[in-house]
């Protein structure tokens, strides 16, 4: 079990990273009501033997101490009773899981990070296109307030520092880009958190695995309790 004592030096770096992460695609989230959000994750604290909120800080400390996210958020094959076709993606934003449906009532389950408070959404969409190492274009508001982001106003090329990570799948509804994506991340500790502006993030190994399986046109069902924005339904 990770210790939860945060060191100052790491905390400052972490804070900067969190602010940057939360700013990704901010204009997208601005269109979403302030009500929709994923449910909070809890982690068992072995020292107090109590369930406590899995906050940004605890997630960061857990990852720093263990080098990976909790087992529940690691890629695994699970039972999944559904009539949806193999190849369908099911996103459970409340439990922070993404399922890729396999034959024989099985699915691959991946841990995900979802929209923070006010940025949750639900719907039935599809994968409109795929891109490895996508370019990240910071939103206008972020460019205006952050000199670091301003450097990339014309687009940050794909690479290990790019917040969209190793790959992205662009979600469409009715043939139009929703501006929501399923993408990788350069901040793997954020899996299990409500942290994005509506995009679904996986760690880079998982997005590569999912990317290799998913076909353009695949159906994507997004479940989110209390979402106030619905797409494709």
């Amino acid at each position: 079990m990770a210790t939860f004592n945060l060191r100052r030096a790491n905390g400052k770096r972490f804070l900067i990273a969190i602010i940057a992460a939360a700013s990704i695609l901010a204009p997208v989230g601005a269109a979403v009501s302030q009500e929709g959000q994923g449910q909070e994750t809890q982690i068992f604290d072995a020292s107090t033997r109590e369930w406590v909120p899995y906050t940004d800080w605890r997630a960061y400390e857990y990852y720093r101490a263990n080098g990976h996210v909790p087992a529940a958020f690691q890629r695994q094959i699970v039972d999944f009773r559904t009539t949806e076709r193999p190849g369908t993606i099911i996103i459970d934003g409340d439990r922070h899981y993404l399922y890729y449906v396999l034959p024989d009532l099985k699915a691959i389950r991946y841990g995900i990070g979802v929209g923070r408070d006010g940025f949750g959404w639900a719907g039935i969409v599809n994968v409109g296109r795929k891109q490895e190492w996508p370019t990240w274009i910071p939103p206008k508001e972020m460019v205006e307030r952050d000199p670091e982001a301003a450097k990339w106003a014309g687009g940050m090329p794909g690479g290990p520092d790019n917040p969209l990570g190793a790959a992205a799948m662009y979600l469409y509804a009715g043939g139009k880009d929703t501006i929501f994506r399923i993408h990788g991340t350069n901040q793997p500790w954020t899996i299990g958190l409500n942290i994005s502006s509506g995009c679904i993030r996986l760690n880079n190994e998982d997005i590569r695995d999912l990317f290799s399986r998913v076909e353009v046109g695949a159906k994507v069902i997004v479940l989110m309790q209390g979402a106030s924005l619905y797409r494709g339904v």
Binding site: M1, Q39, E40, T41, Q42, I43, F44, A46, R49, W51, P53, Y54, P70, A71, A72, F73, D79, F80, R81, T82, T83, E84, I90, D92, D94, R95, H96, Y97, Y99, A107, G192, I221, L223, Q225
Partner: peptide
């Protein structure tokens, strides 16, 4: 001594239905 820790060390704070059960209902 104290009871063993739970098999899962993280959980959702909400008691929502698992995704597959929600889809069974949708169907």
């Amino acid at each position: 001594g104290p009871p063993p820790p739970p098999p899962q060390t993280v959980r959702s704070g909400a008691d929502t239905a698992p995704a597959d059960l929600q889809l069974v209902c949708a169907n």
